[in-house]
């Protein structure tokens, strides 16, 4: 089976995010970059699928040179090869442009099933998997927590409010992974060592015959408003203090 897993490199969830003064993006200094956690579920599912049915896992990622580290992580987990789409025109790409780039790379390689994270934890757009499926003309099942493949049929469980759906589709298809799908593996050391030698094709938009087309752009990035300091209500009379709490909740916080 030919399996593709798309990954995105994002800042570590614990990283200190500083918005550039001009609002054009974040200050990347001192940031630890990791694979977006939902993409890890996708890679793990891709590897499990390969282990069950045989075949190869190809990693595809869009991003600057540093993205190679994340690609190597996926290769260390057990993927066979990778395509790294590195083009300055795509560095701040929106979901559509990113999905177009992924589609341009994937359409040329055999693909029976494509895994994406259900969203990346940096921009939270949650669209890339869906747009990719549309561009490739494939069915998609998004935000899934369980996957069974039988022959040319994929059966996926998707949790929704108060219920879960069992969705069937035919291969090839695009699957986007939700937490709960699996526990991503820890790369073995031989895996890490071998990953250094696995083939990674680096391509730019030209190589893919892609004219980068953005449907949207981030106009300005600004930090969230600073959290106002907490208040300690002073006084000796508990009743008066309680009354003050109620007053503040009503008048200032406007929650009651």
């Amino acid at each position: 089976m030919n399996i593709v897993a798309c990954v995105k490199q994002v800042p570590d969830t614990e990283a200190l995010i500083k918005v550039k003064p001009d609002g054009s993006g974040i200050d990347e200094g001192g940031i630890k970059w990791v694979m977006s956690p939902y993409d890890e579920f996708g890679v793990e599912e891709a590897l499990k699928t390969k282990e069950k049915f045989g075949g190869e896992v190809t990693i595809v990622s869009v991003g600057p040179a540093r993205t190679m580290e994340t690609i190597r992580t996926a290769l260390a987990m057990g993927a066979e090869k990778a395509i790294h789409i590195d083009d300055p025109a795509l560095y701040n790409a929106d979901a559509y442009a990113t999905a177009s780039a992924l589609a341009a790379a994937i359409k040329d390689i055999p693909h029976d099933i494509i895994f994406c994270g259900m969203r990346a934890i940096d921009d939270d757009s949650g669209q890339v998997g869906s747009v990719l499926a549309e561009l490739l003309g494939l069915p998609q099942v998004t935000v899934i927590t369980k996957l069974d493949i039988e022959g040319q049929t994929a059966k996926a469980i998707k949790p929704i409010e108060g219920a879960q759906l069992l969705i069937e589709t035919s291969l090839p298809c695009v699957i986007t992974a939700q937490k709960g799908l699996n526990e991503p593996r820890y790369a073995s050391l031989p895996g890490i060592m071998k990953a250094k030698k696995k083939p990674v094709e680096v391509k730019n938009a030209g190589d893919l015959g892609l004219a980068v087309d953005q449907k949207s752009a981030v106009a300005k990035m600004s930090p969230p408003p600073a959290r106002p300091p907490g208040k300690i209500i002073q006084g000796d009379d508990p009743a008066a203090k309680a009354a003050e709490v109620i007053r503040l909740l009503r008048e200032e916080a406007k929650v009651i």
Binding site: D12, E14, A15, L16, G30, K32, V34
Partner: peptide, 12 residues
């Protein structure tokens, strides 16, 4: 990722 077992942001 953060050079500590708890995974608290290294900058802290």
């Amino acid at each position: 990722n953060n050079s500590n077992p708890w995974g608290i942001g290294a900058h802290l």
